[in-house]
Amino acid sequence: MLNALGVTVIFLIVIFMEVPGLIKKKKTKEVVAFFILVAIGYTLNLLVAFDVKITATNKLIEMLMKPIEKIWGK
């Protein structure tokens, strides 16, 4: 449980450091992409914190990134 709290605190610190600057610069696409990637990272880190076996995360990441790649192009 302490691991999950540590992961949460670290992610909140990163969010509070990065998001205000992006909002001030009115970079909405970057904010959306940031939150998508943070959500993925947070979820994976929580699973690791709770000792859940994670297999083939690269395939999951590829599946999630394909729609983003189509939006922004190569």
Rank of each mutant, 00 (worst) to 15 (best):
L2E: 15
L2N: 14
N3Y: 10
N3K: 12
A4V: 15
A4R: 14
A4K: 15
L5D: 14
L5V: 12
G6Q: 10
V7H: 00
V7T: 01
V7R: 00
V7E: 04
T8Y: 07
I10T: 11
I10E: 08
F11I: 01
L12A: 06
L12M: 06
V14D: 10
I15Q: 04
I15L: 03
F16H: 02
F16W: 02
E18M: 05
E18W: 04
E18K: 02
E18V: 10
V19Q: 03
P20G: 00
P20W: 02
L22G: 08
L22Y: 04
L22E: 07
I23Y: 06
I23A: 10
K24Q: 12
K24I: 14
K25W: 00
K25N: 03
K25M: 01
K27H: 02
T28W: 03
T28N: 05
K29A: 12
V31C: 00
V31K: 01
V31I: 08
V32Y: 02
A33L: 13
F34E: 02
F34Y: 09
F35P: 10
F35H: 06
I36G: 01
I36V: 12
L37T: 02
V38W: 12
V38H: 10
V38N: 07
V38M: 09
V38S: 07
A39N: 08
I40Q: 08
G41L: 00
Y42D: 01
T43L: 04
T43V: 08
L44C: 01
N45K: 08
N45G: 04
N45I: 02
N45R: 07
L46Q: 03
L47E: 08
L47A: 09
V48C: 05
A49E: 00
A49Y: 01
A49C: 03
F50Q: 09
F50H: 11
D51K: 08
D51T: 06
V52H: 11
V52C: 06
V52E: 03
K53N: 12
T55K: 15
A56Y: 14
T57S: 15
N58E: 11
N58H: 14
K59T: 14
K59W: 15
K59S: 15
L60P: 13
L60K: 09
L60C: 13
I61F: 12
E62M: 12
E62L: 10
E62P: 06
M63T: 12
L64K: 04
L64F: 15
L64R: 04
M65N: 14
K66F: 07
K66I: 13
I68G: 07
E69A: 12
K70H: 09
I71R: 06
W72Y: 15
W72H: 15
W72N: 14
G73P: 09
G73L: 04
G73V: 05
G73Q: 05
K74M: 10
